[in-house]
Amino acid sequence: MKRYRGFFALASIITLAPILFPVNYFVTVVGVSIAINALIAVGLNLLMGYTGQISLGHAAFFGIGAYASGLLTTLLSWNPWLALLVGLLATWLVAELIARPILRLKGHYLAMATLGFGIIINILMVQPTHITGGPDGLSDIPVLNILGWDIDSDIRWYIVANGALLLGVWVALNLINSRIGLALRAVHGSEVGAQMMGVDIEKIKIKIFVVSALFAAFAGSLFAHQQGFISPDSFSFHFSIELVVMVVLGGMASKYGPIFGAAVLTMLPETLVVFEDYEVLILGAIMMGIMIFLPQGLWVGLSQKIKPLFIKKTISVEPAGG
């Protein structure tokens, strides 16, 4: 089917990369981090790109998933899969509770409220030191095991993380093309218009907020087991911002843009190892530059700028409004 064409392309790239470059650090090691970040970005894109609701606190949900897995498997020695499930349920609960009042807000207020929420959750990871290990975090998180198969090598993690990513992308694609997806995009286009067409905008915003939180929490659980160690730094305000940049860099409401954005942003510090101190500066410059010069994102923006050069027939290439 046509709608899955890009999906198969993505799956092929993911499959071929480790076969063509089996010992390349960027594929087998960074590739895992890219997949995990991309999974969060794909979920956040459902909320931000398609529904038009900004969240500056998504690192919190990533953190809730990671800490649920980390705490339950180390302190209580639970089975990792049970811990993951409980992490998802906890995220569902928190997201549902917070979404109701938060999503009544718009624009700057929504940004500030999600930001505040993220910071509060981050402080809750640092402060109860006796439980969470405080700023030092949790270590010795056990490996994940799928049907007797220990996920303990780079390539195994590559398969699991990218498998999860493909699953997430598939779900997101389906959702966007469904009746609910149309309603979500309608909310972005015009809230009054959507309401008048029978869309319960309050309910649908809450639900997509929960869905995108679950994407992040799932990624968080994988992250905890993959790293074997977590600390609050990975779930700070700064990471929330990076997530937003991944979505924006790729292009909001673009199907594969967030994956591209996640890849760029995850590789950035790796390629800048020599200029470590420049990382912050460059991140800031990218954010400003993209928004000022390519507001539709690098992925969408560049493809729109390049397309007319090849297609001579004047099909009206309209910039996406808003």
């Binding site: 038009g52 624009g107 940004a111 924006v248 500066l281 991140l283 410059a285 400003m288 928004m291």
Partner: peptide
């Protein structure tokens, strides 16, 4: 609104 939020956060990080 979203763009200006990102621009000013970008400026702050820069």
């Amino acid at each position: 609104v979203v763009s200006t939020i990102i621009i000013t956060i970008g400026a702050s990080i820069f």
